[in-house]
């Protein structure tokens, strides 16, 4: 009996790490640009298709595809920023948030439709030779590929942390998130920081998508699902803290997994919503709020 709970917790942990990784990019973009790109989940979906594409064409291992999905989505993100979101920079904060949400909403539809046109509406998955291998730990089964995805997610977040704290670009990004006007006065090229931050946030979505493809099916329609997970995670974990976001992702994954077992799989999503609304009600000043 207890081993079933442990098993559920393990599955929750494994998927939760991806929730965390999926949310970090959205959180980074919001923190730096005060724009909420609700098409973030569609970028994760595109990352997943990069991996599927490379696997179908050249049997490229999804863990190697991460190295392609990241840079590819960086370019996509930078392009989206340049064509669309750049036009919102000079708006007031409230209008920036509102309009970025509207644009993201339209963009989500565009990307989803493009994906349907390009790859059909079906679900797809990568099936490397080691797909079914598991690690058995006293009655608890740990799928190896999922474990590897979790470890890699953690490594990527560690790398992001080092980038933000130990490089010039990273420092410029943090300074802009902290105090945009001060950063501009200090000679930081804000426009370029925005471009890089948006690209980086999208690249993280791409990496997350490629890792998702290891264990989950990819279809054009999954974007909204991942955007919502990211939003719930950010509301739970607060802004601007990479490891806080990761922990919140894991927490959501475990809670969903356990409640899926308790109430039936049909309602595991509802639990995430309930948590989301409870946090919103309990912290009315908002976890997004930057002090």
């Amino acid at each position: 009996m207890t081993s079933i709970h442990v098993q559920n917790a393990v599955f929750g942990l494994l998927i939760g790490g991806l929730y965390g990784l999926g949310a970090v990019g959205l959180s980074l973009v919001f923190g730096v640009l005060t724009m909420l790109n609700v098409a973030h989940g569609e970028l994760i979906m595109l990352g997943g298709y990069v991996s599927i594409w490379l696997f179908t064409l050249w049997r490229l291992d999804p863990f190697v595809s991460v190295l392609v999905a990241g840079p590819a989505l960086f370019i996509v993100g930078a392009g989206l920023f340049w064509v669309l979101f750049r036009r919102l920079i000079h708006f007031t904060e409230e209008h920036k948030i509102k309009n970025s949400i509207l644009i993201g909403f339209g963009l989500a539809l565009v990307l989803q439709t493009l994906a349907i046109l390009a790859w059909e509406a079906d679900e797809r998955a990568v099936t490397p030779s080691y797909a079914g291998e598991v690690l058995a730990l006293g009655g608890v089964v740990v799928p190896l590929s999922r474990l590897a995805a979790l470890v890699l997610a953690f490594v990527v977040l560690g790398g992001l942390h080092l980038f933000l704290t130990h490089t010039r670009q990273g420092t410029a990004i943090r300074a802009t998130a902290e105090d945009e006007q001060g950063a501009a006065l200090a000679g930081i090229p804000i426009g370029r920081v925005y471009l890089i931050a948006f690209g980086l946030g999208s690249a993280l979505a791409g990496v997350a998508g490629a890792l998702v493809s290891v264990s989950e099916a990819i279809s054009p329609a999954i974007g909204l699902h991942w955007t919502l997970k990211a939003l719930i995670v950010i509301v739970l974990g607060g802004m601007g803290n990479i490891f806080g976001t990761f922990v919140a992702g894991v927490f959501l994954g475990v809670v969903e997994s356990m409640s899926g077992f308790l109430f039936g799989n049909a309602y595991r999503e509802v639990v995430g919503l309930a948590i989301f609304l409870i946090v919103l009600s309990a912290r009315p000043q908002g976890l997004f709020a930057r002090s």
Binding site: F30, L36, V38, E94, I97, K98, I101, L224, H225, T227, L228, L231, I232, V235, E269, V270, G272, L273, F276, L277, L280, P284, G286, F288, A289
Partner: peptide, 17 residues
């Protein structure tokens, strides 16, 4: 009661659920 993006994302979440 909340400001910023909460209302939009709250309603988005409710609808999907």
């Amino acid at each position: 009661r909340l400001h910023g993006p909460y209302f939009a994302i709250g309603t988005l979440a409710v609808a999907e659920i």
